[in-house]
């Protein structure tokens, strides 16, 4: 069976979620791999959400917000952009490819762009392969298990 990436998408309520809705009502076909979490603003996306998604087994995380200047909350997307930049560095430090996290601006009218973003990101993650995070040693239970195995 081929690898189907599991991607968590955080979409802002006003632009990207509406854009995704538009892609749906316009009957556009896009990869079913992105599972969306609606947030009011991309500024709501806590870096912890991204890390938690990876912990829970996501292969990629997509964050979508409004274009600059279009933010419903004036500049939540600016804050999001900075946080994502930091989150990428954290991911790198943790040994996760920063490419697994992507930030995109999709406006409410850009259904086609949402389709394109989802498709290309899915393909990118597919190329990167599965995360296999659960096999890694620093999952607490596994660390404990490994420690137990070493008899410590």
């Amino acid at each position: 069976m081929s690898f189907e990436p599991r991607i968590v998408g955080f979409l802002c309520n006003w632009c990207s979620y509406t854009g995704a809705d538009l892609a749906g009502t316009a009957r556009m076909k896009y990869a079913p791999n992105v599972m969306t979490v609606r947030v009011m603003c991309s500024g709501r996306v806590d870096p912890a959400f991204v890390l938690d998604s990876f912990r829970a087994g996501a292969d990629g995380v997509l964050v979508c917000g409004c274009h600059f200047g279009d933010c419903h909350y004036v500049e939540g997307n600016h804050k999001c952009m900075r946080r994502i930049a930091i989150t990428k560095r954290i991911l790198k430090g943790m040994g996760i490819q920063p490419e697994r996290l992507r930030l995109e601006w999709v406006s409410a009218s850009e259904g086609a762009r949402f389709q394109e973003v989802v498709d290309s990101f899915t393909e990118e993650i597919r190329a990167l392969g599965p995360m296999r995070l659960k096999e890694w040693a620093f999952i607490p239970e596994q660390v404990e298990a490994a420690a137990a195995a070493h008899g410590e």
Binding site: G43, R44, V45, P47, H72, Y73, G76, K79, R83
Partner: peptide
């Protein structure tokens, strides 16, 4: 408050 949640994330 408009409920954007930026402060929550911060």
């Amino acid at each position: 408050c408009k409920g954007c949640g930026t402060c929550v994330a911060a």
